[in-house]
Amino acid sequence: MATSPATILRNPRQWLGQLPLAFAVAVVAYAIIDGGYIVTVVGFALIYAVFVAGLNIFMGYAGQTSFGQNAFAAIGGYASAVLTATYGWPPLAGIVAGMAGAVVCALLIGMPTLRLKGHYLAMGTLAIGLIVYEIAVEWQSVTNGYMGISGIPPLGIGSWELESDRAQLIFLAIVTALSLWATWRLRQSRFGRALVALSGSEDAARALGINVGRTKLIAFVISAMFASLAGSLLVHIVGFISPEMIGMNMVILAFTMLYVGGIGTTTGPLIGAVVIGLLPEVFRGLKDYQDLVYGTALILILIYAPGGIASLGRLAPKRRAAR
């Protein structure tokens, strides 16, 4: 929902509702100012925020399931890696080529796969993620297998490169903001309403004249574009790609961020990515107990904020209306 600053000031509850977002933004701002080790942590979080924002369109808005989004991150990541490192393309061209490839693959994969529903869709998409991972391992002439591809240049346009960590982080912050803005605009549109509608009742959506199959496919393609973009950003920031970077763990991490941040909310992907990105750093001092405390923290968050952190501080009906 669009909220003008004036109404926010008059309504403290809404102001409180934006606290999680304010926290996430503050963390990003602190990282930009501090410029130390936290830059790497927040940088990863922002890349994942883009990935999760795309996943949110397909899973949060349209109510579908995809365990195979890593496939599209792989397409973006390897396209960028091969085109820039091997063929010397500029990073931007590599990113665009990756996204175009992701669109084509999402269309080809989505047309048969999206006929599946519920658990079957989950299984089908899971298979896609696993297949692409195997391709990354086996197609050695292009991907260099487990060894991966190194020497990927940092982001930049022409001869101007984002050399410093801080400049890269600012760039990532801008891309993330644009991504969230795009998902917000989509949600507020005729298209976004159709997505949330079909997640509620496909029969009713069809009876009202919505082409459910095509609408789902478009959502899938859009989420694949976000995933591809995130994959490209990742390899340019790290300067390296290997199959492990785009494996199943990517999907698990993204799911955690989506649910902890708030599935179906606009700001949830950013909040989830920042919180999940920071948690291991916060608990690092606990050494052996780190994973235990991390797991406990996740469970506590999901018990006390079942709608995700983004929906904390709002009344239950309000919270859902703000989707």
Partner: peptide
């Protein structure tokens, strides 16, 4: 009734 529960 098949309303879209998550929409206003």
């Amino acid at each position: 009734t098949q309303l879209f529960q998550n929409l206003s």
